[in-house]
């Protein structure tokens, strides 16, 4: 049995969770800073760091209380070590590593994207490698070949904006505030899908690369050409969302053909998008697995879980506190999984 606390502070969410390899997820707590950054039209790194250092410890306290366990029962501490905002990462890594030292238990730095890749397994015990993962968040758009735990090969990724970033930027153009990705998806439901047809970026080209910055320009141009009424904006949101979903679907199909895998796992915040889920379910012949909606966006549960896998395999960090703002997923090494997910 391994009882692990997981800490996530890579961007603008403070997340803490307690995971037990025998009993599963015992507690997860999240504090989102969205309101702090909303006035600035984007995440302000220094403000994010300042908020983490105030919110993290109370959240750890709450998660332990909710899990019904004392700090002295913990057997490992997992924290996001990268990639992400340098100052924000440092808070979680330093608190986490120091806490592990004080408790005399191992600490492990977790790759944020590995956390996302593993999030679906929190609720899907039977999910086994290899599988294909479509990772769609505010910072990443990647198709990843998950060959084994820790053994990831990026098959394709975005050359410019991440898909979540494209959602937020388009939402801003449509006057939906920041972060407006979810509001944009909401608005798109009122739109007429037939009125505008936006290009499906790079779908006409071979390969698994993405590009979403052109789509945003297309939105701006279309918005300028019409009156910008509520209906116009809804129709544009709808056309934008359909173009994104069709692109993600097309590239996923291609990657599934290439790998021959029978399972597609969705990860990252855009994985909560309803149209994406409906289209993938309806049009792919393979099994599509989603994390719980709250585990699509940044959270501590995925870090606790991914950390638990690595700790159970005997991995641990030295006493050097390591935060790696840039950390390619492909640098990770495969490791044997001695733990079956609960």
């Amino acid at each position: 049995m391994t009882l692990v606390i997981g800490i996530e502070t890579s961007c603008d969410e403070t997340g803490v969770a307690v995971y037990d390899s025998a009993r599963g997820l015992l507690a997860h707590e999240l504090y989102t800073q969205a309101a702090t950054h909303a006035d600035y039209g984007g995440v302000v790194p220094e403000l994010a760091s300042r908020d983490h250092v105030r919110k993290l410890l109370p959240l750890i306290d709450r998660a332990l209380a909710a899990a019904g366990c004392g700090r002295e029962q913990l057997q490992g501490v997992a924290y996001t070590a990268g990639p992400g905002l340098a100052g924000a990462l440092l808070v979680g890594a330093a608190v986490g590593r120091a806490l592990a030292w004080a408790l005399g238990i191992p600490g492990i730095g977790v790759h944020h994207m590995e956390g996302h890749l593993q999030a679906a397994r929190l609720d899907n015990e039977a999910l086994r490698t290899p599988f294909l993962c479509l990772l769609v968040s505010g910072g990443h758009t990647q198709l990843v070949d998950v060959r084994a735990h820790g053994d990831y090969r990026i098959l394709g990724e975005s050359r410019d904006d991440a898909v979540g970033e494209a959602f937020d930027k388009t939402a801003k153009l449509l006057g939906l505030g920041y972060p407006g990705g979810a509001a944009l998806a909401e608005l798109a439901m009122q739109g007429n899908p037939q009125r505008f047809v936006f290009p499906r970026p790079m779908l006409d080209r071979p390969g698994l690369e993405f590009s979403f910055s052109g789509l945003k320009t297309h939105v701006r141009t279309t918005l300028r050409q019409c009156a910008g009424s509520d209906q116009d904006r809804a129709d544009i949101a709808c056309a934008f969302e359909i173009a994104v979903v069709e692109t993600l679907l097309g590239k996923s199909q291609r990657a599934l053909q290439l790998t021959g895998y029978d399972t597609l796992v969705i990860a990252g915040g855009v994985g909560a998008n309803r149209r994406l889920r409906e289209e993938l379910d309806a049009r792919l012949a393979v099994r599509v697995v989603y994390p719980r909606v709250e585990f699509c966006t940044d959270n501590g549960a995925m870090i606790a879980y991914a950390g638990c896998l690595r700790l159970a395999a005997g991995q641990r960090d030295t006493l050097e506190i390591a935060a790696r703002p840039r950390w390619p997923l492909s640098e990770l090494q495969g490791f044997p999984s001695v733990l079956s997910p609960k």
């Binding site: 250092v53 993290l56 330093a94």
Partner: peptide, 15 residues
């Protein structure tokens, strides 16, 4: 922030 974070982790761990 590093000093504060390390202090928080240690002081919380040791109570």
């Amino acid at each position: 922030r590093l000093a504060a974070s390390v202090t928080q982790g240690i002081a919380f761990g040791l109570d």
